[in-house]
Design a protein around this nucleic acid. Sequence first.
DNA 1: CCTTTTTAATTCACCAGTGAAATATGAGCC
DNA 2: GGCTCATATTTCACTGGTGAATTAAAAAGG
Lengths: 174, 174
Amino acid sequence: MASLGNCIFMMDEGVDRLTEALPELPADKAKLSRLMLMVGSRMQEELEHTLKPYRLNHSEFLTLMILYSSPDGSSTPGELCDYTSQGATNMTRIGNALVGRGLVVRAASEQDRRRVRMGITPSGRRFVQKMLPTLFPRLSAMFDGFGENDRRQLGRLLRKLADNLDRLDEEIDR
Amino acid sequence: MASLGNCIFMMDEGVDRLTEALPELPADKAKLSRLMLMVGSRMQEELEHTLKPYRLNHSEFLTLMILYSSPDGSSTPGELCDYTSQGATNMTRIGNALVGRGLVVRAASEQDRRRVRMGITPSGRRFVQKMLPTLFPRLSAMFDGFGENDRRQLGRLLRKLADNLDRLDEEIDR
DNA sequence: CCTTTTTAATTCACCAGTGAAATATGAGCC
DNA sequence: GGCTCATATTTCACTGGTGAATTAAAAAGG
């Protein structure tokens, strides 16, 4: 029963039962929203599962990848918070974890002494080069059977959803 | 910068830079996977934000809704774990929270004394009837501009993704 | 200049969720 | 009937994350 397929089936049934008593419920939107939440969190579990052998969690991995792919291999906690959508508090913890493993170094900024620069180390680069390719097989399997067109559609729809969510955020809440 | 649109833009750039150095990276799949994670977690934040005034979090809300929409208004912790994809430990906490607010009652099962029945109370039903409709406006806004066809496509693609994730789970891990 | 305001990072106290162990009951099997 | 194994729930210790307060430094504005 832990299968996503079963959960989705149960969800469909539940929303249908709900709509009988509550016709003004926007049933198909409710189902899409539940679907997004279910599939999204399952993908996150999948990612964390494959990261576990490397003793990284999602946010630590993301932070490390951003440093790896940034032009000069460094950034500041504040910037990383923006890029990763993490709070400053958690970025401090992430920094501690990555620095503790020698994948990243912290250094006080000279221009602005409030700032801290976090830079990926050579050891951190080697670590990424080694572990990243091992994620590819599962990543590919995730989109098995998605043709060129399916991928384009999914990308389009998710970006559209993102636009709507941004608009919701701007509005004075409720 | 906290906007999803900006985060997605940065992500696209990052993956593109990555692909230059690492041509074997499945770039479009990586982007889709990041997109799903970003949009999914933002939708979760959006939901939790609108639930906050009712002092419910996502998993408590989901549990309460399942009880509300179940034919006899009751279930057991074990079943609820399956339906909500929550661990048993957390379901105990959820039960404590909902029982503590009088929305749900716990009772020992007579047939199987290991089991516990959790049932929604009349007060719990009234609570749901009052709060649920207030979620509809934001839910609808989330899918503004999604026509009949977009909704069908998104549903299809998410269910397909779910199938692949289930297949990944079954396989002997890596 | 020097005070006020803003910004950056960290610390602290807390909330939500997990895995492993404990507890208790039921089921299967000589 | 009594022993072993399986199942349901709870407890406990821990991880990952958040908001509010703290510290420190820069910027703004007389």
